[in-house]
């Protein structure tokens, strides 16, 4: 069995060499699914440390991007051993950059950290129309909708998207969080979202509180 505490702290420290070396050694032992799932959980706990360090100002956005890549690489190593159906999802999040905006870095960081926290994140991509969000909510019945946008023009699109959810009688069934450079308290109130964040780690924490 791998050293779970070591994996957790190495992920938290973003020590890529140590994480990958440890996971490859673990994978070479052809581990059972239960053990592989424990290692996945240790990686996720390491991501919690990354989130905490981001919030405390020790880490910055660049570190979150790196952490997302590290987690993706780690899960790729572990995937053949995890098995299917054993991991319990905390629920689905429909995520996308709103119409008119093609930026996706922040959205992708949120996606990585959301998946690390146990959510099933359905990423609609960039520049998505309100109707696309509505259709996705109808299809996947998520608990949360995440609207991303960097440019100030995205505020208007976020508002239209939330209005479209209301018009389709879906607003009451989901929590909506807005994120990205365009998000702030005023924008949150204006567009009719439930919460906002410019910090992916904090946003995932907010989502976690909604499904606790």
């Amino acid at each position: 069995m791998a050293d779970l505490a070591l994996i957790k702290s190495a992920v938290g420290d973003l020590d890529e060499d140590l994480v990958i070396k440890t996971l490859k050694e673990f994978a070479s032992s052809n581990p059972p699914a239960a053990e592989a799932q424990q290692v996945v959980a240790a990686c996720q706990q390491g991501m919690d440390i990354v989130g905490e360090r981001f919030e405390s100002g020790e880490y910055f956005v660049g570190d979150l991007i790196f952490a997302g890549e590290l987690l993706t690489d780690s899960i790729d190593i572990l995937k053949p051993f995890i098995g299917t159906g054993a991991v319990v999802s905390r629920g689905a999040i429909i995520l996308g950059t709103v119409e008119g905006d093609i930026h996706d870095i922040g959205k992708n960081i949120f996606k990585s950290m959301g998946e690390a926290a146990g959510f099933e994140v359905i990423d609609l991509g960039i520049d998505q129309k309100p109707e696309t969000f509505v259709e996705a909510v109808k299809k996947h019945s998520p608990k949360i909708v995440g609207l991303s946008g960097v440019l100030t023009l995205s505020i208007d699109s976020m508002k239209k998207t939330i209005e479209a959810l209301s018009a389709a009688d879906l607003r009451g069934s989901v929590k909506v969080i807005i994120g990205g450079n365009a998000a702030n308290e005023d924008a949150c109130t204006y567009v009719g979202a439930d919460s906002w964040s410019r910090n992916a780690a904090e946003a995932v924490k907010t989502c976690g509180s909604w499904v606790a």
Binding site: E99, G100, D101, I102, H103, D104, I105, I126, D127, K129, L151, L153
Partner: peptide, 13 residues
């Protein structure tokens, strides 16, 4: 530099 669906020119990754 590409155009978004609404016509705004933007710099993608």
């Amino acid at each position: 530099w590409v155009m978004s669906s609404t016509g705004a020119m933007q710099h993608p990754e």
